[in-house]
Amino acid sequence: MITLAAERAEDWWEVEALFDLCFAPGREALSSYRLREGVPPVPDLSLVARDADGILAGAIRFWPVRVGGRAALLLGPVAVHPTHQGEGLGALLIRDSLALAVDLGWRRAMLVGDAPYYGRFGFDRLEGVTMPPPTNPDRVLGRALAPGAWDGVRGDVTPWTDQP
């Protein structure tokens, strides 16, 4: 049995170790990490999945960003421990966290990833949205969490600030 819960401060390093295992420590060199520097993840949307013994099986984080000055969520990373891959845990983390994002009033989510995988969760290529280089524009995907939320939203993806 797997249980999902909000990531707590004491989970941080265990989650980081899982991300390192799944993505390698060099993951922090990716352009998306520049958008996360100095900005905490969205606490209500950063989830951990634990098995019946309390062992970390998976995790997902979301970060607030701006796209053309408009608020958006940057999904990722999401990872599942190799011993639990193929069980649908990644899909569960994505679906449940996106449902929470809707409940919390977020209007749009985006990520950098594979369209064939993330398309099943409603993500499509974002035209006119530019991630910091060297991001492949074909991998910049978005999902409206409210009707029309991406309509007319264009521009650079920039780090979150308290200013709109």
Rank of each mutant, 00 (worst) to 15 (best):
L73M: 02
E14P: 03
A52N: 08
R120F: 04
F123Q: 02
A52V: 13
R125K: 01
Y117H: 03
D20P: 00
A149R: 11
T130D: 14
G26D: 10
G105Y: 15
L30V: 01
D20H: 11
D124S: 15
D96A: 08
S97V: 07
A52L: 13
F121N: 07
I55E: 14
A71Q: 01
A109E: 01
D124P: 02
L18S: 08
G86C: 08
V65G: 02
L30N: 04
E127F: 01
L35A: 03
A57T: 07
T83K: 11
V65K: 05
Q85Y: 09
R120W: 07
A57H: 07
L75V: 00
A101V: 09
F19D: 15
R139W: 05
R125V: 14
F23S: 06
R61S: 09
P25G: 12
A101H: 07
R143P: 05
F121A: 09
L73Q: 01
G113C: 15
A115E: 12
L21F: 01
P133S: 11
D138G: 08
D103W: 05
R34Q: 14
L74K: 05
M110C: 13
A146T: 11
P64L: 13
E16Q: 12
F121T: 09
F62G: 00
R120P: 03
A101L: 04
V140H: 01
P137L: 12
V129P: 03
P41A: 13
F62R: 04
A9T: 06
L21M: 07
R66K: 15
H84D: 00
R143V: 14
W63N: 14
V102S: 00
N136R: 14
L89Q: 08
D20F: 13
R36P: 11
A24R: 11
V48A: 11
V80R: 08
T130V: 07
L100C: 09
L75G: 03
E28Y: 14
F123P: 03
L45T: 06
G122C: 11
E87M: 04
G54E: 05
L104P: 01
T83V: 02
L100W: 05
G148Y: 10
A49N: 03
P147W: 06
D11Y: 10
F62E: 02
G119C: 05
P147K: 00
V112I: 15
L75C: 03
F62D: 04
P43Y: 01
L74T: 08
S31D: 07
R34F: 13
D51T: 04
L89D: 10
R27I: 07
L47K: 13
P132F: 14
Y117F: 11
I60E: 01
G76M: 11
V67D: 15
T130L: 15
P43W: 03
A79I: 03
I60Q: 02
G69A: 07
R70P: 00
W63S: 15
Y117R: 06
L75Q: 00
P82M: 06
R95I: 00
I94N: 13
T83M: 06
D124C: 12
S32E: 14
P41T: 11
V78D: 09
F19Q: 12
L145K: 14
R34T: 13
D20G: 05
R50S: 10
P137W: 04
A109R: 06
P43L: 01
H81G: 00
L126P: 09
P40G: 10
P133L: 10
Y33E: 15
R107V: 11
P137N: 09
E10G: 01
